[in-house]
Design a protein around this nucleic acid. Sequence first.
DNA 1: CAGTTTAAGTCAGCCTTGTTGACATTCCAA
DNA 2: TTGGAATGTCAACAAGGCTGACTTAAACTG
Lengths: 170, 170
Amino acid sequence: MADGRPSAAISGENLLFLTDEQLRQGIEAMFFAYRGFTADPDRILTDMAYGRAHHRAIHFINRAPGTTVNNLLNILGVTKQSLNRVLRTLIADGLVESRVGRIDKRERHLYLTDEGRLLEGRLSDAQRARMRAAFRDAGPEAVAGFRQVLEAMMDSEMQRAYTRLKESGT
Amino acid sequence: MADGRPSAAISGENLLFLTDEQLRQGIEAMFFAYRGFTADPDRILTDMAYGRAHHRAIHFINRAPGTTVNNLLNILGVTKQSLNRVLRTLIADGLVESRVGRIDKRERHLYLTDEGRLLEGRLSDAQRARMRAAFRDAGPEAVAGFRQVLEAMMDSEMQRAYTRLKESGT
DNA sequence: CAGTTTAAGTCAGCCTTGTTGACATTCCAA
DNA sequence: TTGGAATGTCAACAAGGCTGACTTAAACTG
């Protein structure tokens, strides 16, 4: 739908990548790749008392410093109780700072401390290293396709969040 | 490493997709897309008393009927206790059948029952529908790139498991 | 100004899914 | 026949989701 080739898709070459078998391989590729994707940071985190949820919070606070709790909630797609548990430990451990909003004092704005940035660096270095190797092995055209398919796989709400982050990044 | 363009990669165009910003976008694309990837089957599963772990077991038993518990363990990358809990409920509910091995009677070979296949169909239909839409939107070249990058992102052990499944599928 | 809504935090309790460790059973193979 | 492998079971625990109920403070609105 809305792809500009409605009738061409019913014949020949265009169907080869839409067979159930091809789709199933795509599904399994996602499953196995996601495991690799999280493996390196997970290893670092279990040495400390942290988990993947802490990583996600740290990642997005680093990505958008000063973000509010509510905004983070929407990006992560979890309940505030779930996020709060994670944030509380990160703040208690001095990795995240929570500042009362100046304009709206109900809001809390979140920032990484120096120590938080240090852990963030360790985690993304590990994750980026794998991503870099995969990107390099596959080449620029494959990377473009990779991102195109992933973007099409997101819920529209997440697509918007993704694009917003993408555009904010330099 | 081992990509055939060692020095070319240090200049110009080839670096554009290896900047930290590009890598970070790839990381976030994986995060958001995986959520979409699991969203549809998750919705079906929560209506029943099942979770994602049940889906994974059902998927791979369907994919390789007669697989042993140990084999499934390696593919899923969990402990036998964890898998066993899931398998026990699936067997008790009559979705999975466990047959004692004929050659090696220690082994249990796993099969979906008719009812199991029914649920499997419902789950993969939902997951495939999203994958199909994403593949169609992105086009064949993008899909090829998508799979190339994902494969490069896997641990080598998972890469082997993935390839084995791929080759067994027709 | 009073009442409502919003942002955030907290408490309690529940579920799934992962983990270890200890142990029993069965059965193949040296 | 004995050692080891494959499987299963019990118990205990933790992370990280969830819901529901409630509080506080601030902001908005009629």
